[in-house]
Write a protein that binds this DNA or RNA. Structure first.
Lengths: 125, 125, 125, 125
DNA sequence: GTGGTCTAGACCACC
DNA sequence: GTGGTCTAGACCACC
């Protein structure tokens, strides 16, 4: 049972995909696992079934899932899948973060310094 | 002349505030500078004047600007203002980044490692 | 059901805030009470809903109310809230009164004497 | 040369009358003094001459001034005039103050106590 | 139904 | 020209 909090920074179908990806990265879902039916998932998420359908379609397109007629939608098999997804997500996060820090005038050293500073502060607590 | 691209992740007035803050941090705007009039800024941004006014009012509330009736809205004087804003913005970015990285299963060392790795890759290019 | 008579000495939204504060001081409203919805209150006061919203937003900013999305706007909990508001309102009244009496040439003793005189006169009626 | 700061709590002509009355009470103006010409006064106050005319007309109606054709407008003679005006103004202030304090739930004792408290606080400074 | 945002536009005071 | 207030009304998200 996946939980989601939707915001309006992205279309909901995109946020659903992110949730599935995060679950994969964290091991909550694994390759071969069956996803909820579109209808059930829509009910869980209190979302229109068409929205879930769009997410499922896109995930299949991305090579993340495969749909077996009459059986449901499954996370695709493949040992490298999780690492791949995780790599992409981390890379996107890190890239966006660097872009934003630079837009505030930080060079590489300052970016690292700010992160380390923050982590140290938390460590002391 | 400040540029803005609005998305729908936040109200427009909030994005206007962010633009002004960024301009301050980058030195495009400085304490004492006059902001565009509400009407002019609204025209530049292709936004309703009331939306700009909401942003200006909130900025005044935040201590970022001061308004002189009939003369306009100005970035507040005060040497520490820019550093304060910059500190806040960096801190927010860094905090959010750390939260997101952890939600993907990264501990402190991995967070640092991912940043450094990315920066090195870029350096080689 | 709160009543209001608007004059033009202050913006309407400010007068709405004063009405709510007075109701709190007099016990017509209590911490935790729900205020009328923006739409209802606007209808009662024969005022635009945006004007009520401005008042509600400012009251939230002042720490007087809190808003629960989709549920309404409520007087904030907190035992000291009413005393605080009452103290502020009385203090403002008294200060302004003293300033005005002095602008007519009254010293402290005369101010007191005038008040006492007036109260005694009324007592005899 | 009388100074005025106008607000919008009352029509400007009424505020002009108050200014003249205050000047009388404070001795800045005395019975028999000539007021500025309507034209001059309007210029000083940056106000429409008709507004001054309305104020002068009302003051004459109130028995405060008299106009001598071709000579101007004068504060009326009469030893009790100033005391009368002063009495009225103080009385209005005090009455309004009492009404407002009661509207916040204060009885006579509390009204006096609040005034005395405030005056003592100021005395200590 | 609730509040939140935004537009379009009027009218005002102060400069 | 500048900001401040207000109206009328649309559209949205959340309940």
């Amino acid at each position: 049972m996946l939980k989601v909090e939707f915001d309006n920074s992205q279309p909901i179908y995109a946020q659903i995909i992110t949730v599935v990806k995060k679950a994969l990265v964290l091991g909550t879902l694994s390759p071969g696992d069956k996803l909820p039916s579109q209808r059930d998932f829509a009910a869980q998420l209190k979302v229109n079934p068409n929205t879930v359908q769009r997410a499922y379609r896109d995930m299949e397109q991305l090579g993340l899932t495969e749909t077996l007629r009459g059986q449901g939608t499954f996370i695709k098999q493949g040992d490298k899948l999780v690492d791949l997804i995780k790599g992409e997500m981390l890379d996107d996060l890190v890239s966006a973060f660097i872009v934003e820090m630079r837009s505030l005038g930080c060079d590489d050293l300052k970016i690292i310094a700010h992160i380390e500073h923050k982590l140290e502060l938390e460590g002391e607590r």
